[in-house]
Nucleic acid binder design. Structure first.
Lengths: 186, 186
DNA sequence: TTGCTTACTTACTAATAAGTAAGTAATATT
DNA sequence: AATATTACTTACTTATTAGTAAGTAAGCAA
């Protein structure tokens, strides 16, 4: 038997990434779990508490993944980084940045800050990976690594969005471009 | 004295691109224009009528811009294409794809179709520009032009989103990358 | 001058939203 | 055995939503 609090968080995350923060309600979660509306308020008094907790748990997941990859080669780290987006693609979801950044101004302040934290965390991690790979000759590129990290995160994020609209091969096409742009073959 | 219908469309577009489709209400528009809620229903019976009309007018604008650029060089066409995003950046807005694609499944069907139309229109136009520029030696790149168009649109779209979150130089950084990737200097 | 259309307002409905207060049954603590 | 805590439900409030029906004032058309 699953823990209700955890299930609320997972369904909430799914709803944010499939419908958006403003388009789901406590009633959606309640229906899915066959509990009452107020049960969710018991675990998360306000919607912003739920939203903030979901974002924090995503931050924790990235930190954990980062720790797991610590000893990997830069190439394998990059592969694991891109896997985050692969997983989203497989589930036909967008990433959290894609889901929330368009309406960041309408989010509770705590959520805005957490979203910033996620963006900075991902960009910094990717930048570290790129620098390491360049230093030890795994990757080959001329641009500075911050610009490159910006470009990679942007294009991954947006290809998930475009994929939802067009259902074409844009995600795979982008992934290929990324590998070519750092000159690793896989 | 302005035309109310046109003003509703313009404010509606602004609201979609700053707050999102589900986060604005007829009341928001009514307040801004100092008219009553029902006046908007007179011009646009349902919210989906308003949304669909806004998307159609954006399609018309792109078609018009395309026509205007007809005789330009490929380089100038590309500059005008990117100007669409420059304008968004200046106003601290995201583009319509960035605003609506994350929650496309929650939009009225007519709006979903119009959004697809916009995505296809932009990608096709950019692809044409890239092919023309490659053919006449204005641009130099090895990838196929469809992949390149995907990458450029994706990164422009996402850099507007990231810019809202981080307020850093990501948009300018991406723009520079695009120019370099087709090897034009400006 | 009578009637019709345009562009609204007034006043409303029904649905849904987030949120709360009070009660309850089961479990854990002392 | 008595008490407190956990995890809810029941029943509710208040606010906001999209949407509608009926009325009106101004302008034009026959």
């Amino acid at each position: 038997m699953r823990d209700t609090r955890t299930e609320i968080l997972e369904i909430g995350e799914m709803l944010i990434r499939t419908k958006g923060y403003h388009s789901f309600s406590y009633a959606d979660i309640a229906k899915t779990l066959s509990i009452k509306n107020a049960a969710i308020h018991y675990h998360f008094p306000g919607k912003s508490d739920l939203g903030t907790t979901i974002l924090q748990s995503l931050i924790n997941n990235v930190e954990l993944l980062k720790e797991t990859c610590k000893e990997y080669s830069a190439t394998d780290k990059l592969l694991r980084f891109i896997e985050i987006y692969d997983n989203s693609k497989m589930l036909d979801r967008v990433c959290i940045m894609g889901a929330l950044s368009p309406c960041i101004d309408t989010l509770p302040e705590q959520m805005q800050l957490k979203l910033k934290e996620i963006a900075e965390l991902l960009l910094k991690w990717l930048n570290d990976i790129l620098q390491e790979g360049k230093k030890n000759q795994e990757f080959h590129f001329n641009e500075n690594s911050i610009d490159k990290a910006n470009l990679i995160v942007s294009s991954l994020l947006a290809s998930l969005l475009l994929n939802k609209v067009l259902n074409n091969g844009v995600f795979e096409s982008i992934k290929q471009s990324i590998f070519e742009s750092v000159q690793i073959s896989k």
